[in-house]
Simulated scan of single mutants.
Amino acid sequence: MWLLPVLFLPIVQGSYPLMAVSNAVSGSVRGSLTVQCRYEPGWETYKKWWCRGANWENCHILVKTNGSGEKAKGNQVSIQDNQKMNMFTVTMEELRWKDADTYWCGIEKSGTDLGVKVKVTIDPVTVQCHYSPEWETYVRSWCPDADLSSCTIVVQTAGSELKKNLVSINQKMHTFSMTIWGE
């Protein structure tokens, strides 16, 4: 009996020339976040972009490279292409609650651009302040500016919630904390 050799060929799925290192990223209110997008060799001199919106075909481009490794800046966002590593990096700074959305890494090309979805979420931040026992009866407040003379108080202990922010007081530990959920 003759046994016919069976030839096993691996099934290779087509790969997409662009991918986000992570399809979901988060950053803290007033903080920053970084997104890295990798591309296959051959796309080095193409323009890379970062846009916002649920549908990438008509999303709003926030920043775009000029086809070189030079850093490009937009409003609180920058993009830089590392052509030797076949990767571009997007940095969003001074994050606000309203920045949570769907974004896209993209490569501009003739015809339809390449695009990969990245979900951006914004995490709350909790700030804890310590005070001396003699200050227990005073109103405690939160002001986000460094200059106290021109500061607008965002929240104070007279109310428990204001502008989506939450204040908690631990009188035994002589602390009060504020969770910043947004603006």
Results as ranks from 00 to 15, higher is better:
residue 1 M to N: 12
residue 2 W to K: 14
residue 12 V to E: 06
residue 12 V to Y: 08
residue 13 Q to D: 08
residue 17 P to C: 04
residue 20 A to E: 14
residue 21 V to W: 02
residue 25 V to G: 04
residue 26 S to R: 06
residue 28 S to C: 02
residue 32 S to R: 01
residue 35 V to L: 12
residue 38 R to Q: 14
residue 39 Y to E: 03
residue 41 P to D: 11
residue 43 W to M: 13
residue 44 E to P: 06
residue 45 T to W: 00
residue 52 R to T: 06
residue 56 W to T: 10
residue 59 C to L: 05
residue 60 H to M: 06
residue 61 I to G: 01
residue 64 K to V: 14
residue 68 S to R: 02
residue 72 A to K: 09
residue 72 A to T: 12
residue 75 N to K: 12
residue 76 Q to Y: 13
residue 77 V to W: 06
residue 77 V to R: 08
residue 79 I to V: 11
residue 80 Q to K: 13
residue 84 K to F: 00
residue 87 M to P: 00
residue 87 M to N: 11
residue 88 F to Y: 09
residue 97 W to C: 09
residue 99 D to W: 01
residue 99 D to C: 07
residue 100 A to Y: 11
residue 102 T to P: 03
residue 103 Y to D: 09
residue 109 K to M: 13
residue 110 S to F: 10
residue 113 D to E: 10
residue 113 D to L: 06
residue 118 V to C: 12
residue 120 V to Y: 01
residue 125 V to I: 08
residue 133 P to G: 09
residue 136 E to A: 15
residue 141 S to P: 00
residue 143 C to A: 13
residue 151 C to Q: 03
residue 152 T to Q: 12
residue 152 T to L: 08
residue 156 Q to L: 01
residue 157 T to Y: 04
residue 157 T to D: 14
residue 157 T to K: 12
residue 158 A to V: 01
residue 158 A to C: 05
residue 159 G to C: 02
residue 161 E to I: 11
residue 161 E to H: 08
residue 162 L to V: 02
residue 162 L to N: 04
residue 168 S to F: 01
residue 168 S to W: 00
residue 170 N to G: 04
residue 172 K to V: 15
residue 179 T to Y: 01
residue 181 W to G: 13
